[in-house]
């Protein structure tokens, strides 16, 4: 027996996480740019009615056909993206910000504040999410901003919990104790040391949440509690074509496909961001 242990190192395979991240970031950027300039790109006025051209099937002239008032569906899907995507991003932005602030304060200060806020968040989590949102939206009345508010009320606890658990873990670390011994006030410790260190998990949660929130927002609109007709929004466009699904399927399929595509892109980006942030991959970057 010559060798007991033989080590032969070949080049460690580099994972393509960074490439994937860039790819999905570009896709999201294209999506956002198209949304932003939807009014300029749209070939027709999304609100112009022409009853003589209603219910046309997809054709080179109308890529996605027209609806029962003769409005061009492609233009409506494009402009509808503004409501759907921007409302979703605003929603995720608000709840992640609010949840993080509340969760960090609870984790840091603990005590009565922590108990009270966490019980409130338990109450929010105890209801089935969409049912609770339906109740709130119904109470507030229709409209995109009310739907966003309703979903925000049920969704912030998730972020508060992530931020709280991360803060609790950091609070007992030596470097936070060292910062306290350096004479830092609580505010300075939270801003300088705790928030920058918990941002990663919060960002990943937010990215993965965009798809879900978009579906729920479209769901509320579909039920008539979000964007109100004639506003172009994917959820209420699907709702409007619901009864004609078998005869004029493009009425539902066009906005449905838009939702599908957007949710998939944001979910894939969220997954990639999570993989990228994963400390186990830190060498593969």
């Amino acid at each position: 027996m010559k060798d007991t242990v033989t080590v032969r190192v070949q080049k460690v395979k580099k994972s393509g996480i960074k490439t994937r991240l860039i790819f999905f970031l570009i896709l999201v950027a294209i999506l956002l740019l198209v949304t932003l300039f939807a009014n300029q790109i749209a070939p027709y006025d999304p609100y112009a009615q022409d009853l003589s051209r209603s219910m046309l099937p997809p054709s080179p002239e109308h890529w996605m056909g027209t609806d029962r008032y003769g409005r061009d569906l492609f233009s409506r899907v494009l402009v509808g993206a503004q409501t759907s995507i921007f409302a979703t991003l605003a929603l995720v932005g608000v709840i992640s910000l609010f949840g993080t602030v509340v969760g960090t304060l609870c984790g840091y200060y603990g005590g009565a504040l922590d108990s009270v806020v966490m019980r409130i968040s338990d109450v929010c989590l105890a209801f089935p999410g969409l049912v609770f949102a339906l109740a709130i939206a119904a109470l507030l009345g229709g409209g995109v901003s009310n739907a966003v508010l309703a979903l925000a009320v049920i969704s912030w606890p998730k972020y508060a919990r992530v931020a709280r658990s991360q803060t609790l873990a950091l609070k007992n670390s030596s470097f936070v104790a060292a910062a306290r011994l350096s004479g830092s006030t609580s505010g300075q410790m939270i801003l300088r040391h705790i928030l920058p260190n918990i941002l990663g998990p919060i960002l990943v949660t937010a990215m993965l949440d965009i798809g879900t929130m978009m579906m729920e927002l479209a769901g509320l609109s579909f039920l008539g509690l979000g964007a109100q007709p004639p506003t172009a929004e994917w959820g209420n466009m699907m709702s409007g074509g619901r009864s004609m699904l078998q005869t004029y399927p493009w009425l539902v399929l066009s906005p449905g496909f838009a939702i599908f595509l957007t949710v998939v892109i944001f979910n894939l980006l969220g997954d990639t961001v999570r993989d990228y942030m994963d400390p186990k991959n830190s060498r593969a970057r």
Partner: peptide, 23 residues
Amino acid sequence: MVFQSPAGSFDPRRTLGDGICES
């Protein structure tokens, strides 16, 4: 005070200089 874990007593996202100068 000087802590037990060497690396754990400095904020991983800040330089040693930031930590030393904080006080």
